[in-house]
Design a protein around this nucleic acid. Structure first.
Lengths: 197, 197
DNA sequence: CTAGCATACGGAGAACCTCTCCGCTTGGTG
DNA sequence: CACCAAGCGGAGAGGTTCTCCGTATGCTAG
């Protein structure tokens, strides 16, 4: 599992107070984003972490960078889950379970947080987008070879559709709806090949 | 077709300069939102319309109200389209065409604009959400009775899924993707009933 | 143990934003 | 034509993101 530790070894390592502040910021951001959504004030995060705004912005040059950092460990978990599922019994079941987990993840991060999975090249940190796509592509291609997933389906599209579910249900009140929508997408995934138009 | 003209007749009609300003603001907002997305600065809109910010805010108390107003005529068009399609040959084809039009609409308004279709009770103007749902529900139920649409599908879910496509592809670069995703959803809509799990 | 300096910090502040308030202007009517 | 409710503009309050730079401090070489 790739982890983002690409640090130029010619430079001396980070000062410990800097590392500490970074961790504190990250932990605080996790909390605040969970409370107030991805639009939460970055000043507020800095304040609650007990550092100045300048410090926050040196560690994370913008909101996206901070969001990406907060999401990173969850993403890595998803990537690892894909690895585990890849050796499970049923290829279809593996894909299904992973997509369920992915949807849950995207929703927990308030939908919009996961928007950066979709947006621009992902500013900083390790490449979340790539990791997710790799995980999805692996499971999907196995389900296409060994399972019943339709072969004209691309991983990009599948992920995008699930992200869409997360986004559009982020503020909804029907707690069951995301599951229903995902079930529908899964039906399409394992359904017969597209009807001739 | 319901149109939002609910004006208390005991009050004298709006002054003409007010009506003119409102129209100018609306036209400018349409442009600016199209250029810069639904996050565009309202000050900028006021400036370009040649009025003060105060004027904008009296006509439209907040961003949502302005967005809703901009979307209104498009929504009414969609509602009217549903009426037209309702008497067409194939129930399935009618639903399909309407969903295509709806997706195009949601995307033109930058995805996020259509977020207010999903969010809170829709602040002002006529009830966009209700109108859309009515249109979708009518076409879907006919496709379920006379066509091949699966009967365990609710209009809410179908609309939500399409909104999700619009949202998640709003900033994407693959121009074909929205169509592919919609095709997938349509396959599910007309597909066999859900497999026994 | 200490001196020196690269590294990191904090917070003032610039430049934006949304939205409110209120004194002045003006369209429409009696 | 005079009146006044309706409407206007813009100052400004209070929020935001993000930058800049003088100051403080962890680390290391001596």
């Amino acid at each position: 599992m790739p982890t983002a530790q690409g640090q130029d070894p010619t430079r001396r390592p980070r000062r410990t107070d800097a590392r500490l502040n970074r961790e504190r910021l990250l932990a605080t951001a996790r909390e605040v984003f969970a409370e107030a959504g991805p639009e939460a004030s970055l000043n507020e995060i800095a304040r609650r972490a007990g550092v100045g705004p300048g410090t926050l912005y040196r560690h994370f040059p913008n909101r996206s960078a901070l969001l990406a950092a907060v999401l990173t460990d969850r993403i890595e978990t998803l990537y690892a889950l894909a690895g585990t599922l890849a050796s499970s019994e049923s290829a279809d079941e593996a894909l299904t379970q992973w997509l369920r987990a992915f949807l849950a993840h995207a929703r927990i991060n308030q939908g919009l947080g996961s928007a950066l999975l979709v947006e621009e090249p992902v500013p900083l940190g390790l490449d979340c987008h790539r990791l997710i796509m790799d995980a999805a592509a692996g499971l999907l291609s196995r389900a296409q070879r060994q399972g019943t997933a339709r072969t004209d389906l691309a991983a990009d599209d599948l992920v995008q559709l699930v992200v869409g579910i997360a986004l559009s249900t982020a503020r909804g009140h029907d707690a069951e709806q995301p599951d229903r929508l995902l079930a529908l997408v899964l039906d399409a995934t394992y359904g017969r090949p597209p009807r001739s138009r």
